[in-house]
Nucleic acid binder design. Sequence first.
DNA 1: AATGAATGAGGGTTCATTCAT
DNA 2: CATGAATGAACCCTCATTCAT
Lengths: 236, 236, 236, 236
Amino acid sequence: MYKQKPSPNKRARQDSQKFERRNLILEEARHLFLKGSYESISMAALSKKSGLAKGTLYLYFKSKEELFLALYETHLEKWFGEVNAELEKMIHKKPADLNVIHLVVKLMVRSMKAHQDLARLLIILHTILEQNIKISRAIEFKLKLAKHLTRTGSLLETALKFPSSGEGAMLLLRANALIIGLWQMANPGPVVREALEHPEIRGMKFDFFEEFSQTYSALLSGLELNKTNAKRSYQS
Amino acid sequence: MYKQKPSPNKRARQDSQKFERRNLILEEARHLFLKGSYESISMAALSKKSGLAKGTLYLYFKSKEELFLALYETHLEKWFGEVNAELEKMIHKKPADLNVIHLVVKLMVRSMKAHQDLARLLIILHTILEQNIKISRAIEFKLKLAKHLTRTGSLLETALKFPSSGEGAMLLLRANALIIGLWQMANPGPVVREALEHPEIRGMKFDFFEEFSQTYSALLSGLELNKTNAKRSYQS
Amino acid sequence: MYKQKPSPNKRARQDSQKFERRNLILEEARHLFLKGSYESISMAALSKKSGLAKGTLYLYFKSKEELFLALYETHLEKWFGEVNAELEKMIHKKPADLNVIHLVVKLMVRSMKAHQDLARLLIILHTILEQNIKISRAIEFKLKLAKHLTRTGSLLETALKFPSSGEGAMLLLRANALIIGLWQMANPGPVVREALEHPEIRGMKFDFFEEFSQTYSALLSGLELNKTNAKRSYQS
Amino acid sequence: MYKQKPSPNKRARQDSQKFERRNLILEEARHLFLKGSYESISMAALSKKSGLAKGTLYLYFKSKEELFLALYETHLEKWFGEVNAELEKMIHKKPADLNVIHLVVKLMVRSMKAHQDLARLLIILHTILEQNIKISRAIEFKLKLAKHLTRTGSLLETALKFPSSGEGAMLLLRANALIIGLWQMANPGPVVREALEHPEIRGMKFDFFEEFSQTYSALLSGLELNKTNAKRSYQS
DNA sequence: AATGAATGAGGGTTCATTCAT
DNA sequence: CATGAATGAACCCTCATTCAT
């Protein structure tokens, strides 16, 4: 009833081997994602690129969505790690510099430049990736995310000084929101990209990092100001 | 077995009739969009709801994307109109109130609450609607948008006082970005919505309007502050 | 976003044309079914054979199952028509012949020989065709079937004399059951067919029509006998 | 992320252990078959339920079909055993009762009520189970079946008196056919089941056992009658 | 202008079976 | 004997768009 072919691929029996294979898949997915959109990547193409059978992909990921969610998670993990390290460094140095906000913003811009995939994945996170996953996976993801937000948020609080305890996470979520929105606007599809060459609207083009930098900077300043004012009015 | 006579619709010969028919389609599209997502709305369903043939829709719109882009435009038009009116009122009153920012933010929240479709359409504007349109249409749309941004932006400049000439438009674009990001995060799909009932991550839920209000408010304050500082440092 | 090709096929605008096209599809389906099993027929293959696009099939039938159900229905319709005609002829002739049962059985065998597809479709009717259809379609089908059963059943009653009013339909359903079972047993798959060449079990092979003839004949005789006995015991 | 240690099952070295393991698998298959259809039972699910690896199942059965064929065979074995015992009892008693047919039919209904799985497996026997098996297995199965048919058939001949030597087996095959057909018709899928609640076709529902009882009874009576008539006409 | 029949690419997923370990 | 990772064929159906009528 069912045909089968010999299986030319080595079998990953050990957990470590399975982990490696999983990473291999994610790595190939990343490569494809660099060149094309999520929609343009078919599981068939990914399997071919990975040198694996289509079915094998489903041994490691429950669905295409969960696969890319895992890719996002991997990147995010790294990103948080790097940002944490830099924040800790910054905190240690105790920069006499008044303008910590500026430092923080620069830090974020730098780390995002190194992880542009992350921004692109973030764009589809809420509209696609989080749609076709098991609830258990959703909870797992959000739990992990929450932990990161808490940890890095708390570092942010220390570095920036002005936020109250617990507000750091919210600062990250707001950065998130800004990234989603600004990235989309700054990186339109080919049609709009060409349209924006039109002289009268050329002004609507902007560089994502430049714009994010300014906006997030202002946002943090504004929040700090609110805090100061609140304290002052409380003191008086 | 088969439907009765075809009974074709009366032809819209006059421009006014064509205009009306176009509006009818948009109105029905709006109705369907209230109940479901963009993807869930098929052109077939829309044609049936409109009492028109599928092909007829394409007499009025070049593609599904252009149709919803038109819907977006219609809403946006109204939204700008209302916001302009309110801004002008505010400017006229010359509120001695120092906190114009607060007033402006309240205004925006109020107008967005009245146009929630707009936010939902905005979410798909860059990722979907702007993808499959003719370049001429893209230019037309962007030109119109630019005009609105300039006009309303300039009103904003007057109301808020701190922005330099031409910066008002950017304030609107930043609001745009925040809306896109925050809306997606505040309104997840059913799976994540349920996942967020989990006790440990319940804290990640937030109300879009509340959050937008705070964030945009801080953003404006921050921008104002930067301006003041810049001037001060310039003066000194 | 979506490509399209010119549509080389003439359009069936009139109901009559649509009816013809529908029949064309059914006819091609019948051809394919002659050569292979239901499972072996892919909608893609059928569309190619029909010279139509895959999607076009779905304009005429909601699913593969409904398509073959329609094929079954068409055949059944014809079968009932022929059987009715023959029964009426038989009734008219008023065969002095005592053995009406024999005549009826011969009639059924003859009509079934002319509609062997019907038997093969009947095999999959309950296990496949009736599984993936809309309930409304199921009701429609069963209603039509009920009418046929009543009409032909009543002719059977007249011809055979012994059945009470309303029992004729049941005679047909019992024939149905016998056909389903005997056909499967008489026409095994290739493996079993070959196995039955083994000398010790060669005796298990049998001819469907021969066997059906004998069995149904005995069944009718038995029913008649029961009736007679019942009457007799009632009279005495 | 990954499951704990593999902890392979103890090896069944002795034949008795292998036999037990084989039975365990069949037993679990029976459990799953009680709750769902053949198609709905995946080898993966069965292996999990059995606490064995997927590959292990294939150490005991060559294919899914052979596995369920074995399940069928096991049941059939039991069924024949019980029926034989009852038939022998009946023969011993030498029931003065004229209506042995009635007794035999009651016996069969009783035994089938106790083995409803058997009927459900019978439905798929010819269309599925016998399709993907080795020819040697097919021969083995048919040989065993033939023996049973002969033995039980001969008991039937003795009990019923009217069949000639060798005809008993055919009586069983005819019962087989009736069961296949009537069971399918009496136990439709969910859609048709619901459709049959429709008032005008509610009459098409029937109870399998009731109907089988009447039909098989009539069939036997008819066969007996034919015999008597044949003899009589021969004598005269 | 209006119709609606025709198009056909496109793709994720399942699952019985194998065989290296 | 036992394992379970790997295989990969197979398939229905949707739906935006076109264009003959």
